[in-house]
Design a protein around this nucleic acid. Structure first.
Length: 595
RNA sequence: GGCCUCGUAGCUCAGUGGAUAGAGCAGCAGCCUUCUAAGCUGCGGGUCAUUGGUUCGAAUCCAAUCGGGGUCACCA
């Protein structure tokens, strides 16, 4: 790639001219802004100290050197301290000729190295998935693909939280008020059915608390003493003791939930290489904690509870094991982290988990470090922001959630209404039309969520449904379909696209800009992987599609009479389609052949 | 209260020390007998929360202040 060539050449230039061994951070090479002439710009301010000349003179000197010593540098101009370099037409054309038909352009071949384990989704089995889970799933899945495209050996992992008091609440409510209702008898999706009883529990539970408070009890005490919660706790104890009836009910209801989740994952287009269940791993951490006590890095108190003092790390004293010997959240995570490390010896362990758990992950890393696990540095918490509604945060128990299944269905319906209104589907078979609504509806939803920086909180307004025009998934999908249409017509006309670098065409500005955008793709994939950010890819895909639409509008393709020009444009079109498809693939978004 | 994080156009968001801060939506005005108008072009819209500092250069780095969110459980 030309960037490396220029980088090395600049390093040589300042060595020769000023006897300076430049550090990489001193060589600031960037894309030239559109309003100036040139392709790449070198910021020369870092060299003015050693050149002892004005920025302009320094830039001119380095420019001269590059023009004489680098074949690809055709000309240069200097504006203030900025050296704008123009790369030769020949370079651009040979880039196009060499890469246009490379279907995996931008993707690195996977290395035979230690894997990167990405855990995402990790749902509780007491309620259906909502918008927050959608962000989690889309980020985790997309990040996995981006890392894979950057040459990593990725394992996608889901850890299902299938045990605990929350499930017992749903179980109890179903036993008490469910009348043996099943997904079949109710017509409800399994996860929604179980979620319904979670809400039922909460309603009755709150009633009980109110009654107790009315009788003179303190609210926090009432919350602990309400009969329903005591009974739920009993169920949990029976579960841990292996009580057959409880286990059977638990299996039955969790089974419903898994069927429901499988449907949601499939609709969303998400998958995993391996699924773990917390019921099978929740005891793992205890042994580790015991080891820590033996080593003297953790302290056991008189009541039997185990603690670690992380004041030195700026964290508090943290509980690692309850006085009754049962494990807490962190105990389990210690166990699963260790298990995962033993199983995969990963290069990196990525957890896609909301930023509300940042503190927890800091503690997790610190605890492992104290235990002598130097691999704790391999843990990376992709801490994404909350999805907020105009009214504030989503709360499952209060019903202020945007349900994942409902939302996707709405997206499909909107896509259908839109397509009908625009008269897009007259020539479509029913089956193809239905598939198109799904492709576009999901494209809109996924793009909407992935285009924002994962770290930031984002706002979702259900009243203003997700857009299909402008900076959206459908816009990019439309651009792809448009290109495909042109290519089909070219094919029908019997055009054979052949393009080689010694072609004598001149590059029009629209062609040049498009080519430059395409050229950027591989570097952006690497950047997205480094930053763990699908948003980098999303924003790129939009810019690329915009660039193509400008090109498409300004220039004719099929009717271009100059054969070299027509081939150049067809070649650029095909290349663009392929890069759009690749970029959207990284986001888990499909492309339609027509729309 | 301690710690973390965010604050950029009416709204949703880009912009990981570099040139005159950008998109989309919403608003207004144009472009379909021509390769798909889910498109293209133009206009208006900014004290980058505030103040100070570092730097040749700050939306970006540092400090303080104000405002929003998160977190600090023998919950997960």
């Amino acid at each position: 790639m030309i960037e490396q060539i220029l980088n090395a050449a600049v390093t040589n230039a300042v060595k020769t001219l000023y006897d300076l061994d430049a550090t990489p951070s001193q060589v600031q090479l960037q894309n030239t802004r559109k309003e100036f002439e040139g392709d790449f710009t070198l910021v020369v301010f870092p060299f003015t100290k050693v050149s002892r000349k004005s920025p302009e003179a320094t830039a001119a000197e380095i420019g001269e050197y590059l023009q004489q010593n680098v074949a690809e540098v055709e000309s240069f101009n200097v504006i203030k301290g900025f050296l704008n370099l123009s790369v030769s037409r020949k370079y651009w054309l040979s880039f196009l000729a060499g890469s246009a038909n490379e279907p995996r352009f931008g993707f690195s071949e996977s290395q035979e190295t230690k894997p990167v384990v990405v855990e995402y989704s990790s749902p509780n089995t007491n309620k259906p998935l909502h918008l927050g889970h959608i962000r989690n799933n889309l980020l985790g899945f997309s990040l996995s693909r981006i890392l894979q495209a950057a040459g990593k050996n990725v394992v996608k992992v889901n850890l299902v939280n299938d045990r605990g008091i929350h499930i017992c609440k749903s179980m109890l409510a179903w036993q008490r008020w469910g009348n043996n209702e099943t997904p079949e008898s109710s017509g409800l999706k399994g996860d929604h059915l179980v979620g319904k009883y979670y809400v039922v529990f909460d309603k009755h539970y709150k009633d009980e608390i109110s009654t107790l408070v009315a009788g003179g009890m303190q609210a926090d005490e009432a919350a602990k003493k309400a009969p329903l919660i005591l009974e739920a706790q009993q169920i949990l104890q029976k579960w841990e003791a292996g009580d057959e009836a409880v286990i059977n009910l638990w299996k039955k209801m969790n089974g419903w939930v898994y069927d429901g989740f499988a449907t949601t994952y499939q609709t969303l287009g998400i998958e995993f290489d391996k699924t773990y269940y917390e019921s099978q791993t929740y005891l793992l951490g205890k042994k580790l904690v015991e080891e820590g006590v033996q080593k003297g890095v953790y302290a056991r108190r008189a009541d039997g509870s185990v603690w670690i003092d992380l004041a030195a790390e700026g964290l508090d004293e943290k509980l690692l094991l309850r006085s009754d010997g049962t494990s807490v959240y962190i105990t389990q995570d210690l166990g699963t982290a260790m298990q995962r490390y033993d199983e995969y010896s990963p290069e990196q362990l990525i957890y896609v988990v909301g930023n509300e758990q940042e503190y927890h992950f800091n503690v997790l890393k610190a605890v492992l470090k104290h235990l002598g696990c130097d691999w704790s540095t391999a843990i990376y918490h992709l801490s994404y922001g909350m999805v907020e509604l105009p009214a504030g945060k989503m709360k499952s128990r209060e019903g202020t959630v945007v349900d994942a299944d409902d939302l996707m269905q709405e997206m499909f319906d909107t896509a259908e209404a839109m397509a009908r209104e625009l008269g897009k589907i007259e020539s479509f078979e029913d089956e193809e039309a239905k598939k198109l609504y799904r492709t576009i509806g999901l494209g809109a939803l996924k793009y909407f969520i992935l285009k924002v920086d994962p770290k930031k909180n984002m706002l979702f307004n259900p009243a203003e449904s997700v857009d299909f025009n402008g900076n959206t998934g459908p816009f990019i999908q439309y651009t792809y379909a448009r290109i495909k249409s042109v290519l089909r017509k070219a094919d029908e006309a019997g055009y054979v696209v052949s393009f080689s670098a010694d072609n004598s065409v001149t590059l029009r500005p629209e062609e040049k800009e498009l080519l430059r955008k395409l050229h950027d793709f591989p570097a952006l994939v690497m950047q997205a992987a480094d930053m763990h950010s699908p948003a980098v890819i999303a924003n790129y895909a939009f810019e690329l599609a915009s660039e193509y639409n400008r090109f498409y509008h300004e220039l004719t393709i099929l009717k271009e009479e100059n054969l070299d020009s027509r081939n150049l444009r067809l070649s650029l079109s095909g290349f663009t389609a392929s890069v759009i498809a690749n970029a959207l693939w990284l986001l888990g978004i499909e492309v339609p052949e027509r729309m």
